[in-house]
Structures are given as structure tokens and as C-alpha cells.
């Protein structure tokens, strides 16, 4: 479904990604784990077209999207829920959700997705008129995911959804990610919480200083000694 071939991205003269290859099949949950600054978010931002790769190509459903603008990529169904939520704090919860459907014109389907999102996150419904910035961290993460789902994603890119959340929220966010995946959305999940991410993922990539160091089934990564030592703290 999505394929990154030899992708290199740089900030100024510094390479953040060096010949990265990633492949994601339909309906999969794939996770990218790695330390701070390894290049996880850079991978997602390169896929989304926020950053332009200096080398390599990205194919989504057979179409080359590597030098396209973000709005085009979103319209194809590649939707990112960015790190730190990045909801619009001054806009109301409802306006934030509406913005997710910015590119869509199919009114009836938008309404259906809206109902789906509000049943997935009933807490948000109580807070429609509130400014997004007044929500708690966990609620903001829900809002960010809800907003992403309103863009009708085929592939949902999630950047650190558990960042800064209370453990109880972490569990429910991961449950929701699984549920979204069951409803047919392919998921690329970037996480520092490697154990949680690997427990719900089919496959995992380990990133280190801009390289893919290892790629394997999530089960195998959970039992791999070097991975356990470096990322699972055992």
C-alpha cells in the first residue's frame, strides 16, 4: 500500500534520514520505534509532504507521492495525527473536528463518519462548544485522532499518541487504535513506548540515527535480545 524507497531527508545540511526503506501492506499495523531524534517523526513528515525528500521515492497505492504537496497527499487518504496533538487550541472542539473533513464534499458520508467518531469518543461530544485548548491532554489526543479520522484515512500516521498521557489514557488510546484498524484503516504508528506499540502491531521497524536498523514481526522484536535491552528496558 505504502512504499518508501531509499528515502533521504535533510534539515539544511544535516541528513535526518538516510536511505530509508519501509513497506506497509493493507490493513496492517506497522510501528516505528526508536530513541529521541532517531528520525521517526521525520519519516512521517516526509510521507505527509511537510518535508521533501532529497532522494528516493514514496509510492502510495501505486502512485508516486514523494514530491507532492500535503493537501494532495491528504486527499489520497494518507492522514497524519501529528506529535503533540497539534489541535487548534483557539477553535472549538467541533470546529477542530470539522477541519478534518476540510477536503471532503460527500455530505452524507461526512455525517456518518461524524457519528462514528462521536461514538468512538463520547467524551468529545460533551465538549463540542469548548475551545480545544481547554481539554486535558488525553482528550486532546482523542480530538486529534477524531480530527484525523474525519479526513477519511486509508492510511493513518500516528506520531507518539501516548506522549505525555496518564497510563490509563495510554491503554484506551491503544485500544482505540486497534479498533480503528479493525474498521479497515491501515496504521503506521510511531512510538517511544515500544512495548505498547509492539504489542498491538503486526510488524515493527527500529530506527537509529536516520537508518532502519532492523525490521521484523512485532512478536519477534518483543523477544529479540538487543531490542529488549535497548528499547524495552529489560
Amino acid at each position: 500500500m505504502l512504499e518508501l524507497k531509499n528515502i533521504s531527508t535533510r534539515y539544511g545540511n544535516i541528513y535526518a534520514l538516510d536511505r530509508v526503506n519501509i513497506k506497509i501492506k493493507k490493513k496492517e499495523i506497522v510501528t516505528i520505534i526508536g530513541a529521541n531524534g532517531a528520525g521517526k517523526s521525520t519519516i512521517l513528515n516526509t510521507i505527509s509532504g511537510i518535508l521533501k525528500p532529497v532522494n528516493g521515492t514514496i509510492f502510495f497505492e501505486g502512485e508516486c507521492i514523494s514530491l507532492k504537496e500535503t493537501d494532495f497527499i491528504v486527499s489520497k487518504g494518507v492522514v497524519q495525527v501529528p506529535e503533540g496533538r497539534q489541535i487548534f487550541p483557539h477553535l472549538t472542539v467541533l470546529e477542530n473536528i470539522k477541519l478534518g473533513a476540510y477536503l471532503r464534499k460527500d455530505k452524507t458520508e461526512i455525517n456518518r463518519d461524524f457519528d462514528y467518531v462521536t461514538t468512538l469518543f463520547p467524551r468529545l461530544k460533551e465538549r463540542f462548544k469548548q475551545a480545544g485548548g481547554t481539554l486535558s491532554g488525553g482528550e486532546q489526543q482523542m480530538l486529534a485522532i477524531a480530527r484525523g479520522l474525519m479526513s477519511k484515512p486509508k492510511l493513518l500516521l500516528l506520531d507518539e499518541p501516548s506522549l505525555g498521557l496518564a497510563p490509563i489514557f495510554v491503554r484506551s488510546i491503544f485500544d482505540i487504535i486497534k479498533e480503528i484498524n479493525k474498521n479497515g484503516v491501515t496504521i503506521l504508528l510511531v512510538e517511544q513506548n515500544a512495548r505498547m506499540a509492539l504489542s498491538i502491531a503486526d510488524r515493527g521497524y527500529i530506527v537509529e540515527t536516520g537508518h532502519i536498523k532492523l525490521e521484523a514481526k512485532a512478536k519477534d522484536l518483543l523477544t529479540d535480545d538487543s531490542v529488549r535491552e535497548a528499547y524495552l528496558g529489560i
Binding site: Q86, L99, Y102, L103
Partner: peptide, 23 residues
Amino acid sequence: TKVGLAMRAVSYNLVAAKLMGIN
């Protein structure tokens, strides 16, 4: 209006607005 909402979104956070599919 929708375009007004997009204007406000762009003014608050350009990158997030892009991720909504706003040009």
C-alpha cells in the same frame, strides 16, 4: 464559513493546517 475556518486554522498553526489538507 469553511474558508474562514481554514483562515483561522492557518493563522494558528500552519503545519497542522496543512495536515488537514488545507493548501
